[in-house]
């Protein structure tokens, strides 16, 4: 069964091609490319990716405008039906602004844009995105963001941790995120937002391949569904 995925492009997205290449290499089928102004997604999708970038020039707040663009109504509906949705970097910001994930991504605590490979700890290995990693495994994935400082109130953070919804934590200081959170899952486990870029770590020429297991797990989850 062919893996049917979609990559959403907003004005100012700049990691959409990398995401599409990663999905095609690992799933074996090229994703549909969907424009933010489209009202509908292709039918019977197995996977939706919101890529990194600077949608709408980060106007208002990072991800705020994109979260209100026409295609997001369809993404929200698909997420509600259980379709896996991965938001990376700006995609994570869009997911929080759209209300699909709790919390908010604020300006990095050190004010500076951070662009380097960082160490992450895999905190959840039960989700369809993270099942390919070992519990507590340390992986290296690049980050490139200005607004990656995860914030949520203490009750929300407690709930996320209690429900195993923290997918990845930073294993080194990066941006001041609450409880070192680098990626979170929604309650149903089919929506993952993360600041690090797994699609930039899928080929040895990238300098590392620790991102592959995420996409491979998602493809496997579909094949066995």
């Amino acid at each position: 069964m062919a893996f049917r995925s979609a990559v959403i492009t907003f004005p100012g997205s700049n990691c959409d091609r990398d995401m599409a290449v990663a999905l095609e290499q690992i799933a074996g089928t090229a994703p549909h490319r969907v424009w933010h102004g489209d009202a509908d997604l292709p039918d019977r999708l197995d996977f939706i990716a919101l890529p990194g970038g600077f949608s709408y020039g980060d106007y208002l707040r990072s991800g705020a405008m994109a979260a209100r663009s026409p295609i997001m109504q369809a993404v929200i509906a698909a997420a509600g039906r259980g379709v896996p949705v991965l938001g990376v970097c700006n995609g994570f910001q869009v997911l929080t602004e759209a209300g699909l994930l709790p919390g908010a991504l604020m300006r990095n605590a050190g004010i500076r844009f951070v662009c380097r490979e960082v160490a992450l700890t895999v905190a959840n290995t039960q989700s369809l995105f993270t099942a390919g990693y070992a519990a507590g495994q340390q992986i290296r994935i690049p980050v490139a963001h200005h607004d990656g400082n995860y914030f949520a109130d203490a009750a929300t953070l407690d709930r996320l941790e209690g429900e195993g919804r923290v997918a990845f934590r930073y294993a080194e200081p990066v941006n001041g995120s609450a409880r070192d959170i680098a990626g979170v899952l929604n309650e149903a486990g089919n929506v993952l937002g993360m600041m690090p870029h797994p699609e930039r770590a899928i080929d040895p020429v990238h300098g590392g391949t620790d991102g592959r297991a995420l996409f491979e797990a998602a493809v496997r989850a579909l094949a066995s569904a």
Binding site: L60, R61, A64, R68, T96, E97, P102, G103, A104, M106, F151, A152
Partner: peptide
Amino acid sequence: KLLANLVI
């Protein structure tokens, strides 16, 4: 709904 993000 838009101008403020009520989370923060």
